[in-house]
């Protein structure tokens, strides 16, 4: 629809604008990416199902309805806040929790990898709570920390903390004895071995842990905004569901999906930049 008119315009008006040119170049080099075909196919199926009214709009609004609603929520807002405000609130919560979980999780995981006492003390509680879904301990977090911002950030931090600690610990333990012996025979002290061998050796796994944590953080967002929130993407999606405004529910879900994908892609790029040797040695 919108896309087609844009394409027609581009063809008529000389050189295509850059995103199209980049796509064109990429297709010429690598062929049409399978992921793109899959995404377009899904969109097409969605459009056709709603076009022929196979499912009632209450259950499945059409792509166009969702796009229109997206614009409306972005400009006029929903539940007393615009989309940008909802996004901003959720981003603040997630980023704060990510910073807290990283600042505590990485050093603790490194210490657990280095020292069996630290490991012995902290491993049982972390192993126990990790597999429990955050929604299950949400009531406890609310009883302890109230219904304010603190409880939400603590819930998100807990969801992100475990994968970060576990992978930092695994990173330390993955260092081979021979790599340490090589440093020792070159005269390295214990501190130098940690700084120059153990730490860089653990970096790929630490970054993987951060990526896992981002995934579970976004996965916990709706749970965190379940109680006593007035803003946030999770809250917006939940309250739209209560009023059966299905197209806004779609807007919420798609926005969360887009942001989470953006985060994961950024972290993957960071990984490629910081640890180009990963999987090569």
């Amino acid at each position: 629809m919108v896309d087609i008119s844009l394409l027609a315009q581009a063809e008529g008006a000389g050189p295509a604008p850059w995103p199209w040119r980049a796509l064109h170049a990429s297709i010429k080099k690598r062929g049409v990416p399978i992921t793109l075909i899959s995404a377009l196919g899904l969109l097409l199926a969605w459009a056709l199902v709603t076009k022929f009214k196979l499912v009632a709009p209450l259950f499945l609004p059409s792509p166009l309805d969702v796009a229109t609603q997206f614009y409306a929520v972005a400009v006029d807002g929903f539940s007393n806040a615009t989309l940008l405000e909802h996004v901003g609130t959720s981003l603040f919560r997630i980023l704060t929790a990510f910073a807290i979980a990283t600042a505590i999780g990485v050093p603790l995981g490194l210490a657990m990898g280095l020292n069996r006492w630290v490991k012995g003390i902290f491993s049982p509680p972390i192993q126990l709570y990790w597999p429990v879904p955050p929604l299950a301990y949400l009531p406890l977090v609310i009883i302890w920390f109230g219904i304010g911002e603190t409880a939400k950030i603590i819930l998100l931090s807990l969801a992100m903390f475990a994968p970060i600690v576990i992978s930092a610990q695994a990173g330390v333990r993955s260092v081979s004895q021979a790599r340490i012996q090589a440093a020792q025979s070159l005269g390295a002290t214990r501190a130098q071995i940690f700084r120059h061998v153990v730490l860089p050796n653990a970096l790929p796994e630490i970054l993987t842990g951060l990526r896992l944590a981002t995934g579970s953080g976004w996965g916990t967002l709706v749970a965190a905004e379940l109680v006593a929130a007035t803003k946030g993407l999770g809250f917006m999606t939940l309250s739209a569901a209560q009023f059966l405004v299905t197209d806004v529910v779609f807007v919420g879900i798609l926005t969360i999906a887009a942001l989470a994908t953006l985060f994961l892609t950024a972290l993957r790029l960071l990984e490629r930049r910081l640890t180009p040797w990963k999987g090569q040695d």
């Binding site: 081979s176 020792q184 025979s185 005269g187």
Partner: peptide
């Protein structure tokens, strides 16, 4: 009494640091 830089070691397994 321990490893030291007066005795250099070359290992069978490659122990170079990829970073």
């Amino acid at each position: 009494t321990g490893p030291g830089p007066d005795r250099g070691v070359v290992f069978q397994k490659d122990t170079l640091y990829p970073w």
